[in-house]
Protein backbone atom coordinates (compact mmCIF):
# COMPACT_ATOMS: atom_id res chain seq x y z
CA UNK A 1 0.00 0.00 0.00
CA UNK A 2 1.00 3.59 -0.48
CA UNK A 3 1.75 5.78 2.47
CA UNK A 4 2.53 9.44 2.53
CA UNK A 5 4.73 10.73 5.28
CA UNK A 6 7.38 13.30 6.02
CA UNK A 7 10.81 11.96 6.90
CA UNK A 8 13.34 14.40 8.25
CA UNK A 9 11.40 17.26 6.77
CA UNK A 10 11.05 15.73 3.34
CA UNK A 11 7.68 14.48 2.01
CA UNK A 12 7.78 10.87 0.86
CA UNK A 13 5.32 8.67 -0.95
CA UNK A 14 6.21 5.07 -0.32
CA UNK A 15 4.90 1.71 -1.40
CA UNK A 16 5.03 -0.58 1.64
CA UNK A 17 3.72 -4.01 2.61
CA UNK A 18 0.98 -3.89 5.25
CA UNK A 19 3.19 -5.78 7.70
CA UNK A 20 6.37 -3.79 6.96
CA UNK A 21 8.03 -2.37 10.03
CA UNK A 22 8.99 1.25 10.14
CA UNK A 23 12.56 0.27 11.01
CA UNK A 24 12.95 -1.76 7.82
CA UNK A 25 11.39 0.94 5.69
CA UNK A 26 13.74 3.54 7.12
CA UNK A 27 16.84 1.38 6.90
CA UNK A 28 16.24 -0.50 3.67
CA UNK A 29 13.90 1.60 1.55
CA UNK A 30 15.17 5.03 2.57
CA UNK A 31 18.74 3.96 3.38
CA UNK A 32 18.62 5.75 6.72
CA UNK A 33 20.84 3.42 8.73
CA UNK A 34 21.09 5.51 11.89
CA UNK A 35 18.28 3.67 13.69
CA UNK A 36 19.62 0.30 14.81
CA UNK A 37 18.06 -3.09 15.29
CA UNK A 38 19.07 -4.86 18.50
CA UNK A 39 16.49 -6.55 20.75
CA UNK A 40 13.68 -6.33 18.17
CA UNK A 41 11.21 -6.46 21.05
CA UNK A 42 10.79 -2.87 22.20
CA UNK A 43 13.15 -3.23 25.15
CA UNK A 44 16.45 -1.64 24.20
CA UNK A 45 15.58 1.58 22.41
CA UNK A 46 18.31 1.27 19.75
CA UNK A 47 15.69 1.68 17.03
CA UNK A 48 13.98 4.72 18.55
CA UNK A 49 12.76 7.42 16.16
CA UNK A 50 10.30 10.24 16.66
CA UNK A 51 6.84 10.07 15.08
CA UNK A 52 5.10 13.42 15.37
CA UNK A 53 7.57 14.19 18.14
CA UNK A 54 6.87 11.07 20.18
CA UNK A 55 9.56 8.44 20.71
CA UNK A 56 8.58 5.08 19.23
CA UNK A 57 10.39 1.78 18.80
CA UNK A 58 10.64 1.47 15.04
CA UNK A 59 11.30 -2.28 15.39
CA UNK A 60 7.72 -2.89 16.47
CA UNK A 61 5.96 0.03 14.75
CA UNK A 62 4.19 -0.67 11.49
CA UNK A 63 5.21 1.61 8.67
CA UNK A 64 1.53 2.10 7.73
CA UNK A 65 0.94 3.65 11.15
CA UNK A 66 3.24 6.44 10.11
CA UNK A 67 0.99 7.33 7.20
CA UNK A 68 0.27 11.05 7.30
CA UNK A 69 2.79 11.64 10.05
CA UNK A 70 6.18 13.19 10.41
CA UNK A 71 9.16 11.00 11.25
CA UNK A 72 12.46 12.24 12.61
CA UNK A 73 15.53 10.02 12.58
CA UNK A 74 19.02 10.78 13.81
CA UNK A 75 19.97 11.80 10.30
CA UNK A 76 17.54 14.69 10.55
CA UNK A 77 18.69 15.96 13.89
CA UNK A 78 21.49 18.26 12.80
CA UNK A 79 20.75 21.45 10.92
CA UNK A 80 22.98 20.92 7.93
CA UNK A 81 26.51 20.76 9.28
CA UNK A 82 25.50 22.37 12.54
CA UNK A 83 24.92 19.75 15.22
CA UNK A 84 21.80 19.73 17.39
CA UNK A 85 22.62 20.80 20.97
CA UNK A 86 22.03 17.23 22.14
CA UNK A 87 24.48 15.89 19.59
CA UNK A 88 27.04 18.46 20.65
CA UNK A 89 26.53 17.63 24.31
CA UNK A 90 26.95 13.90 23.63
CA UNK A 91 30.23 14.55 21.83
CA UNK A 92 31.59 16.81 24.53
CA UNK A 93 30.48 14.77 27.54
CA UNK A 94 31.95 11.55 26.19
CA UNK A 95 28.46 10.03 26.09
CA UNK A 96 29.26 7.99 22.98
CA UNK A 97 31.25 4.79 22.96
CA UNK A 98 30.33 2.11 20.46
CA UNK A 99 27.54 4.34 19.21
CA UNK A 100 24.99 1.58 18.70
CA UNK A 101 22.61 3.04 21.28
CA UNK A 102 23.42 6.64 20.43
CA UNK A 103 20.78 7.51 17.84
CA UNK A 104 18.06 6.04 20.03
CA UNK A 105 19.37 7.85 23.08
CA UNK A 106 19.49 11.18 21.24
CA UNK A 107 15.93 10.92 19.98
CA UNK A 108 14.60 9.68 23.32
CA UNK A 109 16.32 12.59 25.01
CA UNK A 110 14.84 14.98 22.46
CA UNK A 111 11.35 13.67 23.16
CA UNK A 112 11.96 14.05 26.87
CA UNK A 113 13.20 17.62 26.61
CA UNK A 114 10.12 18.50 24.57
CA UNK A 115 8.02 17.31 27.51
CA UNK A 116 10.19 18.61 30.28
CA UNK A 117 12.59 21.45 29.66
CA UNK A 118 14.08 21.41 33.13
CA UNK A 119 14.63 17.77 34.00
CA UNK A 120 16.45 16.67 37.14
CA UNK A 121 19.03 13.90 37.05
CA UNK A 122 16.38 11.50 38.38
CA UNK A 123 13.95 12.54 35.65
CA UNK A 124 16.54 11.66 33.03
CA UNK A 125 17.44 8.35 34.65
CA UNK A 126 13.80 7.44 34.73
CA UNK A 127 13.07 8.54 31.19
CA UNK A 128 15.99 6.55 29.82
CA UNK A 129 14.80 3.27 31.37
CA UNK A 130 13.73 2.09 27.95
CA UNK A 131 17.08 2.88 26.36
CA UNK A 132 19.83 0.40 27.06
CA UNK A 133 23.51 1.18 26.79
CA UNK A 134 25.98 -1.57 27.55
CA UNK A 135 29.10 0.60 27.14
CA UNK A 136 28.90 3.82 29.07
CA UNK A 137 27.35 3.04 32.42
CA UNK A 138 24.91 5.86 31.52
CA UNK A 139 26.55 8.55 33.63
CA UNK A 140 27.96 10.55 30.74
CA UNK A 141 24.75 10.14 28.76
CA UNK A 142 22.78 11.66 31.63
CA UNK A 143 25.39 14.41 31.96
CA UNK A 144 25.03 15.15 28.27
CA UNK A 145 21.24 15.35 28.39
CA UNK A 146 21.37 17.67 31.40
CA UNK A 147 23.99 19.82 29.70
CA UNK A 148 21.86 20.08 26.56
CA UNK A 149 18.83 21.02 28.66
CA UNK A 150 20.94 23.69 30.30
CA UNK A 151 22.07 25.15 26.96
CA UNK A 152 18.53 25.20 25.66
CA UNK A 153 17.49 27.45 28.53
Amino acid sequence: MTIRLVVNGRPRDLEVAPHALLLDVLRDTLDLKGAKRSCDTQVCGACTVLVDGLAVSACTYLAVEADGRSVLTVEGLADGESLHPLQRAFVEAGAVQCGFCTSGMLLTAKAMLAENRTPTRDDVLHYLRGSLCRCTGYRKIVDAVLAAAETAR
Binding site: K33, L83, Q87, F90
Partner: peptide
Amino acid sequence: HPVPRVDAIEKVTGRARYVTD
Protein backbone atom coordinates in the same frame (compact mmCIF):
# COMPACT_ATOMS: atom_id res chain seq x y z
CA HIS B 1 44.15 15.37 27.32
CA PRO B 2 40.42 14.59 27.37
CA VAL B 3 39.86 15.19 23.67
CA PRO B 4 36.50 14.09 22.23
CA ARG B 5 36.59 10.84 20.35
CA VAL B 6 37.52 11.08 16.69
CA ASP B 7 34.47 9.08 15.62
CA ALA B 8 31.99 10.99 17.78
CA ILE B 9 30.52 13.09 14.98
CA GLU B 10 29.87 10.13 12.69
CA LYS B 11 28.23 8.35 15.61
CA VAL B 12 25.93 11.17 16.74
CA THR B 13 24.82 11.85 13.17
CA GLY B 14 24.02 8.22 12.37
CA ARG B 15 26.72 8.06 9.71
CA ALA B 16 28.92 5.46 11.45
CA ARG B 17 28.64 2.18 9.60
CA TYR B 18 28.32 -1.22 11.28
CA VAL B 19 28.27 -4.57 9.52
CA THR B 20 24.48 -4.73 9.32
CA ASP B 21 24.46 -1.34 7.59
